[in-house]
Design a protein around this nucleic acid. Structure first.
Lengths: 203, 203
DNA sequence: CCCGGGTGTTACCGTGAGGTAACTCGTATG
DNA sequence: CATACGAGTTACCTCACGGTAACACCCGGG
C-alpha cells in the first residue's frame, strides 16, 4: 500500500462522470464571461486544468456543449418560475412571485443568466430556439394577466414579450451596475411598476 | 464623343465618396442579416459587387466599419426620440410620443435596429458602450417619469432600464413574428401598458 | 509481474477570416 | 496619342480556432 491512496498529489485524472460535471461547470463560467464566439474550446480546457482532447472525449462539438448548457439553464430557470408562480393566489401574487423567483434565480446563477442573455444567440437558429422557448412560455403566461381590454391574442403576446424584456433589461442593468441591491426588493419594485404602471397610484 | 458618356455599361467604378456611402449601406444590411461575427468582410464586399481590398480602402478595419455604423444608428435613433419627446405636453404624452417614435424608427429602419439589438455587442466593451449610451440616456429620461414613491436614484435607473428593455423586447418579438401590425398601434398599446400597468384600469 | 482499459497529452491538420502587397485597367487631360 | 492617377483585382500572408490521430501514463486484476 503506497502512501498515495486517497490523496492524489494533484487532483488531476478524474473519473469520467466527475470530469464531465466539472467541464460543464467550467464551460458555463467561461462562456458566461467571454460569450460563445470569444470563448474557445482551448480556453475552457485550460480553465479546467486539462487539454482540449479531454473536452472532446465528453462533448462531440462546441455547439453540443453549449447547447447542453443552454438547455439545462433554460429548464432550470423555467422550473423555478413555474414552481414559484404555482403557489400564488390571484394574478397580483403571480406577478410578485414570478418576478421574485426570476430575480432570485439571476442573483444566484449570474453565469447562467449571462449565458442566456449574452451572446450571438439571436442569430443562431438552434440557440435562439432554446432561449425563445423559455421567453415564449413566460410571455404567454404574462399575456393572460394583462387586463387591458380589446386586445387580440397576438397583441397580448407582443405585450407579454414586452414584460419579459422589462425583466431582462432590468436584470442586465442590475448585474452590469454591480449593484448590491437586494434582488427581492428589486423584484418587488419592478413587479409594482409592471402592475401599477409608471403613474404608480397607490392602491 | 463616344456612345458611353453618361451611361457606363455597368455602374462599377464609382467615385470614392459614393462608393463609401454604398459600402456603408451594404454593410448595414449584411451585418443586420448575419450579425457582426458571422458577417465577413468578404461577404460585405461581394454584396457590394466589389472585392475586399476596396473595402479596406475606405475603412481601416472591420471594427472601425462596424463602430461607425453603430454610432450612426445610435445617434439617429436617439435624435428621433428626443425630438419627438420634446414636442410633448406633460409626462403621459412624453411616454406616448417616445414609444411612438421608437417603434416608428424600428419599423422604418429594421436593419439598423437589428444591428443594435442583435450581435455579441454586450461582450465587446466598445460596442457595448455605444449601445449602452443610448439605452442609458433613454432610461434616464424614463426614470424621471416614474411616479412610484420612495425610490432611490439608482433604483429609478434600474426601473428605467426595465422600461427600455420592455420596448426592446416587444420590438424584437414584433420583428421576429413578421407581424404586419401597425407600429403606431403597437406603440400606443405598449405605452398604455407602461403607463397604466398590467391591471389596466381605464382612466 | 505484467497487462488491459481508460484518462490525458503532444503534435498536428484544414479551414476560414482579417488584412495587405503588387499589379491592371479605365478614363480624364494635355 | 501619351500619360498620370486613382479605382479594382488577383494572389497571398498570418493566425486562431475547431477538431483529430497517435502516443504516454497510471492502476487494478489475474
Amino acid at each position: 500500500m503506497s502512501a498515495t491512496k486517497n490523496e492524489p498529489r494533484v487532483p488531476t485524472r478524474l473519473p469520467a462522470a466527475r470530469r464531465r460535471r466539472q467541464l460543464l461547470e467550467v464551460a458555463l463560467r467561461v462562456f458566461a464571461e467571454k460569450g460563445y464566439h470569444d470563448a474557445s474550446m482551448n480556453d475552457i480546457a485550460v480553465a479546467a486544468g486539462v487539454t482540449k482532447p479531454v473536452l472532446y472525449q465528453h462533448f462531440t462539438s462546441k455547439r453540443e456543449l453549449f447547447t447542453e448548457l443552454l438547455g439545462d439553464v433554460g429548464r432550470d430557470l423555467q422550473d423555478n418560475i413555474t414552481k414559484a408562480v404555482a403557489a400564488a393566489n390571484g394574478p397580483r401574487e403571480m406577478v410578485e412571485l414570478g418576478f421574485a423567483s426570476y430575480f432570485s434565480y439571476v442573483s444566484r446563477h449570474r453565469d447562467a443568466f449571462k449565458l442566456f442573455y449574452g451572446g450571438g444567440l439571436a442569430r443562431d437558429a438552434e440557440f435562439a430556439e432554446l432561449v425563445g422557448q423559455v421567453e415564449r412560455t413566460i410571455a404567454g403566461h404574462v399575456a393572460t394577466l394583462i387586463e387591458i381590454a380589446g386586445l387580440s391574442p397576438s397583441q397580448r403576446q407582443v405585450l407579454g414579450h414586452g414584460i419579459v424584456g422589462m425583466i431582462e433589461g432590468a436584470s442586465i442593468h442590475w448585474l452590469n451596475s454591480n449593484s448590491d441591491a437586494d434582488p427581492a426588493t428589486l423584484a418587488q419594485q419592478l413587479a409594482d411598476l409592471a402592475w401599477r404602471g409608471l403613474r404608480g397610484v397607490t392602491p
